[in-house]
């Protein structure tokens, strides 16, 4: 039997009283795919803003991927792709939309349970979401093992995965990401960044903001074209490489317990460097480096004038430390 509705629009009573958005019936499409047992179902839905613009998207999808792409429009377009072993399985998969009066649209996915359903493992149930949203909406998204991708947004976001990879590209505004074991990639982010993982790599490319904080336990951190006043990169076991720019009065701390540290900077104004590691190489640009009694190697580049110099601290307790100035 054909199902009449695939997406459940759970509009709260409060939202109904002061509706910021309207959600018409979704457009449905079933696409035959071969081979092997299972079913796929696709649906499209557009949510028009009501009296208030959509300011934030809160997405929670533990069942698959999420991709959010910003565009110059005011409505939200959601494309869902559900996958289950059979019709009954598809019936159990739910996507809920709750537009709140404060301009937040909450999108959550789940699977219905109960004695009336036969046992289906999570590996055979899946919901993927592709969302086009107004650029100025902030994104709060959480997935589990699926990928989380945010592109072309202007108000930053807070992104969370368990083991799924996080990818952020061309985003302005503060971005914070957390993952247990999902690789994190941030490219062209113009705003403060806070990226935290336990056992995966963090890849940073073209980052410009006030603060950049990234940390990982068993993963590498690699930064290219980084420019931030306050940079703090920390790992326990992974190597850290950073290629960026020092800023006036800036503070850069790159520290690892066991990983090697390799930092290359374009200098703006004076820079004070202190480094400590099993082996320290501050390069030919710092010929007057002095080794202190406590093991720190210190040096200074440029003349300290009226403005305070940028401060660079590099350390690795069990790894090597390398520093160079990019001319």
């Amino acid at each position: 039997m054909r199902r009449a509705l695939l997406i459940v629009c759970a509009l709260t009573a409060a939202a109904a009283a002061d509706t910021p958005a309207s959600a018409p019936a979704p457009k449905l499409e079933r696409t035959p795919v071969t081979p092997a047992p299972g079913m796929i179902e696709r649906a499209r839905l557009e949510i028009q803003p009501g009296g208030r613009a959509i300011k934030q998207l809160a997405i929670e999808n533990p069942l698959g991927n999420v991709k959010v792409e910003g565009y110059d429009g005011t409505s939200i377009m959601i494309e869902t792709r559900k996958q289950a072993p059979d019709e009954e399985g598809l019936e159990r998969l739910r996507v809920s939309l709750v537009p709140n009066p404060d301009g937040t649209v909450r999108i959550t996915t789940t699977a219905d349970g109960g004695k009336e359903f036969k046992n289906v493992s999570r590996a055979n149930m899946r919901i993927d979401l592709i969302i086009r949203a107004p650029r100025d909406a902030r994104i709060e998204a959480a997935v589990s093992a699926g990928s989380l991708e945010v592109i072309n947004m202007d108000a930053g976001g807070d992104l969370d995965t368990a083991s799924g990879p996080i990818s952020v590209r061309n985003v302005s505004g503060g971005v914070s990401t957390h993952s247990v074991s999902g690789a994190t990639s941030l490219t062209q982010v113009f705003g403060s960044v806070d990226a935290q993982t336990i056992s995966s790599n963090v890849d940073l490319d073209t980052i410009g903001g006030e603060r950049l904080i990234a940390s990982a336990s068993r993963g590498k951190i690699a930064g290219r074209r980084v420019r931030a006043r306050h940079i703090e990169l920390t790992t326990t076991d992974g190597a850290i490489s950073l290629e960026g720019e020092s800023t006036l009065r800036g503070r850069i701390v790159v520290a690892s317990l066991r990983g090697d540290v390799d930092v290359r900077l374009r200098r703006q104004g004076a820079v004070t460097i202190r480094a400590r590691g099993t082996k320290v190489n501050l390069g030919s640009a710092t010929p007057f480096a002095k080794t202190q009694q406590d093991g720190w190697v210190e040096s200074q580049l440029g003349q300290i004038g009226k403005t305070a110099p940028a401060f660079v601290e590099l350390r690795s307790r069990y790894g090597t430390v390398q520093f160079a100035i990019i001319e």
Partner: peptide, 27 residues
Amino acid sequence: PAPIAANPPNKVTGPTQVEVGGDVSVD
């Protein structure tokens, strides 16, 4: 509706793994 291949369990390799859907006997 055409059948499709069921996805394998999502699993991330590495020192810390958050396994999802690994136990097919669990709903």
